[in-house]
Design a protein around this nucleic acid. Structure first.
Lengths: 345, 345
DNA sequence: CGAGACAATTGACAATTGTCAACTCAGTGT
DNA sequence: ACACTGAGTTGACAATTGTCAATTGTCTCG
């Protein structure tokens, strides 16, 4: 979602005489245009003259250069962390990192903005031999589509909870494979339903050699990426056919405030175990909590309670959220939250 | 040398009412502006409204964001290698990499353009524990100023040839420390003249414990960066007081065509050893040739002979040059050069 | 060989962005 | 108190950039 530009035509009349020796067959004009424009700071018209094409074509070339990742325009996530609010949240909840995406006046939905920032953060943090466990949800899905195409062959992306049955636009398997594809990473899908009908069937599944192998990889995750669902609304989990109201009811009755990777948590973030849990296939909350780096991407006013709970129980080491959510989060923090973070001198 | 932009003022009249909750004290408006503009693709006017400032201020913020490296606009060097010409040169001379910077119609001098591309390449290639040996010259100097500010604390930048006496704008010690500073790397200077008056004095210097220590580090270089000087013109080496015409004369007489890191080479690239060599303090050509990755940055019609010689004797594993030089280089190559590189389908 | 289809390129126009001199406002010195 | 300085901001204007429909070129097929 970089700058929007497209094509155009050149205005000047001194055209058509290629200045130097440009129009040879030994170069990709797109690369040239990108270099001259972005690196040397030429104007599009100058580039057009240099290349011997119309300025409109230059616009096209530049567009293509961005699409092909020949030029990269990136806001470094490190700087989004320098925003005072991000520091306050990080301090308050003991996070190693916190990204707060600015408000854009409702231009883009929250989950998309958070997805974009999360994408940026993710590619800056991934190391060659990482195994990234991926949960699912609207925000995770948004992150996956915001990722640029890359080549990170050493990385593995693993699906940490079973598949959903419904056919919404997002699902665990789609999130995972999308991310892996964009990243050029190995993709490990968990080929099993997220929820099976009985605890016994779950046991059967889990003992299946193919799944055992898959789980071996999943358990090697040194980073996890997950969203947080609320239970107030009809929630992601239900809309996607992952759960049904009847199944959820007992959890709600016992005080569930949110869903992390398909599992319910109470207001303190404690796992809320119930009958359903024995039918769920995927990493448990305790297992997730053991992964060294845990990236939580979530925001929106309806999710504040759930995010607060999740943070409170330290499920996340890194949080990507939006301004409004961050603002609600700070005063709630159990520890001392410092007011008035450092401003520029 | 990214896009040129500066400050400005906003045109619309619907201003001054901050749309959401932007003007709080918890954020750096520069980061916000950068995010909204570059990441979300808002127009500057929209950003201005969102932030509650004039559009002119937004222009200023964006300028500052680029200056502060909050946004990075980069042409990936990998793509400069995809230019057919670069491949031809690489093939012809057995290089692992070759970058060819496009012609810009004389807008910027060759060495600056090459320096920019070299800078890009360098930061993409440097690994955490690298020791980078740095020679000197106009192009190396240009590279150093084209580097962005970074933090690469694990990297060491070492000066591989002694200091010059003159006070030109560039010198071995300046090149090295410039590069180290920009990169946020450790800087190891070689505190000795590049040329001393007698071979005996050189021996004394080199045995000095402080220098012995320095050389230990220098010899650990796993990457080197050097330019190539011609001897046709009055050359860098002389203008900087590094050498004098009398000293050079014997080398010229014996067929010197170029200078690499202060040492003369003949038309086959062979080191041309003479009286002076025993008075030079710094890595020898043979020592340089043993470094695994050797980045040569050089171009310009006056240097073609010298670059050809250097490439011919395999001093470089990576070459950064300009189109004109690359064009001259290809037909000279001793091996089979393939004509007509791949075009886009 | 011409018609048709499709992609690339272009010029005119509209929108966005950069420049600049003037202005505001805090802080200072007298 | 008041003029002065300097940083930060602004509006009007100029330059640059994006859009789009029309044109051109290329390739395929009849």
């Amino acid at each position: 979602m970089t700058r929007t530009m497209q094509r155009q035509v050149t205005p000047p009349r001194i055209k058509r005489r290629a200045l130097s020796i440009p129009a040879e067959f030994d170069s990709d004009p797109v690369v040239w245009a990108a270099w001259l424009y972005y690196e040397e700071g030429m104007t599009q018209e100058e580039v057009a003259d240099q290349l011997g094409v119309s300025r409109a074509s230059v616009v096209n070339f530049l567009q293509e250069a961005r699409d092909r990742n020949i030029v990269t325009i990136a806001v470094s996530s490190r700087h989004l962390q320098t925003i005072g609010l991000a520091r306050e949240v990080a301090d308050a909840y003991g996070l190693t990192n916190c990204l707060v995406v600015p408000d854009d006046g409702g231009r883009l939905p929250v989950h998309e903005r958070i997805g974009m920032a999360g994408a940026r953060l993710l590619i800056e943090r991934l190391q060659p031999d990482d195994v990234l466990g991926v949960s699912w949800g609207r925000t995770v899905q948004a992150l996956s589509t915001a990722l640029p195409e890359m080549k990170l062959p050493g990385v593995t992306v693993a699906q940490i909870c079973g598949c959903s049955i419904g056919t919404t636009e997002f699902s665990p398997e789609l999130c995972t494979s999308n991310i892996a594809n964009r990243l050029g990473a190995r993709c490990v899908n968990l080929h099993a339903p997220g929820i099976v009908s009985t605890a016994q069937i779950k046991r059967l599944f889990v003992q299946e050699p193919a799944l055992v192998e898959t789980f071996k990889i999943i358990h090697k995750s040194n980073k996890v990426l997950f969203g947080v669902g609320s239970v107030d609304d009809a929630g992601t989990a239900m809309r996607s056919g992952y759960m049904t109201p009847e199944k959820i009811a007992p959890y709600l009755a016992r005080g569930a405030v949110g869903v992390v990777s398909g599992r319910f948590i109470d207001r303190d973030g404690k796992p809320l175990l119930g009958a359903l849990d024995n039918q769920m296939i995927g990493l448990t909350l305790d297992e997730i909590a053991k992964v060294p780096e845990r990236i939580c991407i979530a925001g929106g006013s309806d999710k504040v309670d759930a995010v607060y709970a999740a943070l409170n129980n330290n499920y996340a080491t890194i949080l990507v959220t939006d301004v409004a959510t961050a603002r609600s989060l700070v005063p709630r923090a159990s520890r001392s939250s410092r007011t008035g973070a450092a401003r520029r001198p």
